[in-house]
Design a protein around this nucleic acid. Structure first.
Length: 573
RNA sequence: UGGGGAGUCGUCUAAUGGGCAGGACAGCAGACUCUGGAUCUGUGGGUCGGGGUUCGAGUCCCUGCUCCCCAGCCA
C-alpha cells in the first residue's frame, strides 16, 4: 500500500525514472489521500479469445497492482447472454495464467452482481432517476437526436414511480417480449454527450446465461453494470481504453446518484500492431472463414496463437512494458515484438542443428562406415546449459541455400572449390557437384581436412563460413512450418480497390509447410512446447500436432538475417 | 456540423511549477565471432503550421490544420 517500492519502479534503459500518465495519476491519488491503496481489475467480455492487445491491458492492470502493493481482480463482463460463452471464459483464464498473473481468489463475474444491480435500479426508479420506456429500438434511435441536434424526451419519460416500479418488476418476471421495453436513466435528452441522453440500463433478453441460466430475462448494459461492479469490488482505478472516454461522465453519474464507493476511470490508447488486425470481429472472421486454422493458429495475434507459435510469456510481458502507455493512438511495429522474443529466446533456447531443405553432401575421403561424435555447446550465451554429442559420418545433409554454383561477391558459404567449416566438426572443400537431368544440384562431393577436427586447424587458417549439418544416417525426419506476417501491408486496412477489405492484404505466403526436413537425433524426445534455436535459421518450437516419431516444428521467428540484406543489395538469391 | 480526446526521429516513447530534445525498435557503418546469430562501437533522423510572451518555448498565450471516439436494447 502507499508509495511503490523504489526497485519496482519502471525505468528506461538509461536508468532514469519515468512514469506513464496513469501511474502519475495514481501517485497523486495516493498523495492526496483520495485512495489509500491500489485495486485494479482486468474485465474481459467472454466473447472471444484474448490477443496481444489484451496483454497490454493485463500487464498494465496486474503490473500496477503489483508495483503499488495492491490487488488486481479478474472479472468477466458477462452482461450479454447472446454473445458470451463458457469456452471463452476458460480460454481467458488459461491465457491470463499463462502470461504469469495471479488473481488468487478474486475471480468475479458481472453476473455475480445482477441482484445488487437490480436493487440499485429500483432505488434509482424510486429516486425518479430512471424510468421504463415503451419506445421501440427504432423509436429510441429517432428520439435520441443526432450529433448536432438535441434529442426529444420519450412520451413515457414522466411515468409515476409506482408505474415504473410495477413495469420494471414485470419486465423482470418475463411478462414482456424482447425489445418491447427498456429501463433508462433519466438524465438529459439535450446533452451534447449522447451517452447522457437517457442511456439504456436494462434490456429484455429471453436467453439463458452461461452462469445464471434462466434466472433473468432482463440484463444490465455495460454502462450500468461496469462502474457499479467496479464499486462493489472496491476498485480504485478503473483503467480502460480510449473509446470509453465519453462514457466517463455516465460512469461518474451512476456512482454519484447511488452514493457508493467511486473508483476513478482512466482511459489509455489500445494497442495496435503493424501487419496484423486486433479486433475481435476481424479475428473472428479470419477463423470462421478459414483464413487461418483456428484461434490458436500460430499466425494469429491471439495469446493462444502466439503461445503455439513459440512466444514466451516473458517476451510478451517485456514487450508490453516497453511499448509505453499513453493516450495517443499509435501502431507498434511488429518488429519490436519480434525483437522481444528473440531477446528472450537467445538467452534460453538450446541450439540444435536442423536442415530444412536437405542437400546431400558426401565426404569422399572420410572412411566409409565411420562415425564420430562431436561435443557441441548447447548455448554460447549460457555455458551452464552444457554440451551435447552430435554424430558425424561420411554422408551428411546441408542446407540447399548454403550452396551456390556461381556465388556472388561476399558469399562465405559453399561453392565449387570453396572451403567452409561444418559447425563443431571439420573443414570441408567442395570438389564436385552432381546434377540430375533437369540440371538441379542433387549432391555435393567434398573432401575434409582431418587436421581440422573440432573446427580449428593447427595452421590457424581462417574460413569465413560455418555451416550447420546433420548426419544422414542419424538424422530424424521432421515437418517444419514456416510462418510469416499474416498481412502484406503494415496497415491491413490500406486497400486499393473499392469495396475491398483487409482480407485483400492477407499474405498468401504466411505459411509454408516443409516436409522431409532433417534434424539432429538429440531432438528425439523433444516435448510439445519446447523451444530451441535451429542454428543459423531461427527459433522454433514443437507443435501440438507432433506425435511419437512425427516431429512438427513451428518457426517462432527468424534470426536477424544480415546476409539476406546483403543478398538483396547484391542482387543475389 | 455538437461533444470528447490526441498531435515529439521511419515507429513507439521521455523531457511535469519554461532551461542542452533523451531512449528503444527499425536503418546505416564498423569491430568481434566456430551461428552472416549474439555482443560492442559509431552514425543519420523529430517537437503539425502560423503568430506571439520570454534572455530562453515541445512546454505558456492566440490562431489555424490533421487524426481518433460518440447517434447499439454491443462492450
Amino acid at each position: 500500500m502507499g508509495e511503490p517500492a523504489e526497485e519496482s519502479r519502471r525505468t528506461d534503459e538509461g536508468g532514469t525514472k519515468s512514469k506513464d500518465f496513469i501511474r502519475q495519476i495514481i501517485d497523486k491519488d495516493l498523495r492526496t489521500g483520495r485512495y489509500n491503496g491500489v485495486h485494479t481489475r482486468f474485465p474481459p467480455e467472454p466473447n472471444g479469445y484474448l490477443h496481444i492487445g489484451h496483454a497490454k491491458a493485463i500487464c498494465l492492470n496486474f503490473g500496477i497492482a503489483e508495483e503499488y502493493g495492491g490487488l488486481c481482480n479478474l472479472r468477466f463482463d458477462d452482461t450479454n447472454p447472446l454473445r458470451e460463452e463458457e469456452e471463452y471464459v476458460q480460454s481467458i483464464i488459461e491465457d491470463v495464467r499463462w502470461l504469469g498473473f495471479d488473481w488468487e481468489d478474486r475471480l468475479f463475474y458481472a453476473s455475480d452482481y445482477f441482484d445488487q444491480l437490480y436493487e440499485w435500479a429500483v432505488q434509482l426508479i424510486k429516486d425518479g432517476k430512471a424510468y421504463v420506456d415503451d419506445l421501440s429500438p427504432e423509436e429510441i434511435r429517432q428520439y435520441r437526436g443526432t450529433l448536432t441536434k438535441p434529442g426529444r424526451e420519450s412520451p413515457y419519460r414522466n411515468r409515476s414511480v409506482e408505474e415504473n416500479l410495477d413495469l420494471f418488476e414485470r419486465m423482470r418476471r418475463g411478462e414482456f417480449p424482447d425489445g418491447s421495453r427498456v429501463l433508462r436513466a433519466k438524465i438529459d435528452m439535450a446533452s451534447p454527450n449522447l451517452n447522457l441522453r437517457d442511456p439504456v440500463m436494462y434490456r429484455i433478453i429471453h436467453a439463458s446465461h452461461h452462469r445464471t441460466g434462466d434466472k433473468w430475462c432482463v440484463y444490465p448494459t455495460y454502462d450500468w453494470a461496469h462502474g457499479q461492479s467496479d464499486s462493489i469490488e472496491g476498485i480504485t482505478h478503473s483503467i480502460c481504453t480510449l473509446e470509453f472516454e465519453g462514457h466517463r461522465p455516465l460512469y461518474d453519474w451512476f456512482l454519484d446518484q447511488l452514493g457508493v464507493h467511486h473508483p476513478r476511470q482512466i482511459e489509455f490508447a489500445r494497442l495496435e500492431l503493424s501487419h496484423t488486425v486486433l479486433s475481435k470481429r476481424k479475428l473472428r472472421l479470419l477463423v470462421e472463414d478459414g483464413y487461418v486454422s483456428g484461434w490458436d493458429d500460430p499466425r494469429m495475434p491471439t495469446l493462444a496463437g502466439l503461445r503455439r507459435r513459440g512466444y514466451t510469456p516473458e517476451a510478451i510481458r517485456n514487450f508490453c512494458n516497453r511499448i509505453g502507455v499513453a493516450k495517443t493512438n499509435s501502431v507498434i511495429d511488429v518488429a519490436l515484438l519480434e525483437h522481444c522474443v528473440r531477446d528472450d529466446l537467445n538467452k534460453r533456447a538450446q541450439r540444435v542443428m536442423a536442415v530444412l531443405r536437405p542437400l546431400r553432401l558426401v565426404i569422399d575421403n572420410y572412411p566409409e562406415g565411420q562415425v564420430e561424435e562431436f561435443e557441441v555447446e548447447n548455448n554460447p550465451e549460457d555455458p551452464g546449459m552444457g554440451t551435447r554429442k552430435v554424430p558425424f559420418s561420411r554422408v551428411l545433409y546441408v542446407e540447399r541455400d548454403d550452396f551456390m554454383e556461381d556465388p556472388p561477391r561476399r558469399w562465405f558459404r559453399l561453392a565449387p572449390g570453396r572451403e567452409v567449416r561444418l559447425k563443431g566438426a571439420y573443414y570441408v572443400t567442395c570438389v564436385d557437384v552432381v546434377k540430375n537431368e533437369a540440371g538441379e544440384v542433387v549432391e555435393l562431393h567434398c573432401t575434409y581436412d582431418p587436421e581440422s577436427r573440432g573446427g580449428v586447424t593447427p595452421d590457424g587458417r581462417k574460413v569465413r563460413g560455418t555451416l550447420h549439418w546433420v548426419s544422414a544416417e542419424h538424422a530424424l525426419d521432421a515437418e517444419v512450418r514456416l510462418y510469416d506476417r499474416l498481412f502484406l501491408k503494415a496497415d491491413p486496412e490500406d486497400v486499393d480497390e473499392e469495396g475491398a477489405d483487409f482480407r485483400a492484404n492477407l499474405n498468401p505466403n504466411s505459411l509454408e509447410v516443409l516436409t522431409g526436413c532433417k534434424v539432429e537425433p538429440s531432438l528425439a524426445d523433444a516435448k510439445v512446447g519446447d523451444h530451441c534455436q535451429f542454428l543459423r535459421l531461427g527459433y522454433f518450437c514443437v507443435d501440438p500436432d507432433s506425435a511419437k516419431g512425427k516431429l512438427v516444428f513451428n518457426r517462432t521467428v527468424t534470426l536477424r538475417d544480415t546476409w539476406g540484406k546483403i543478398a538483396k543489395r547484391v542482387g543475389a538469391r
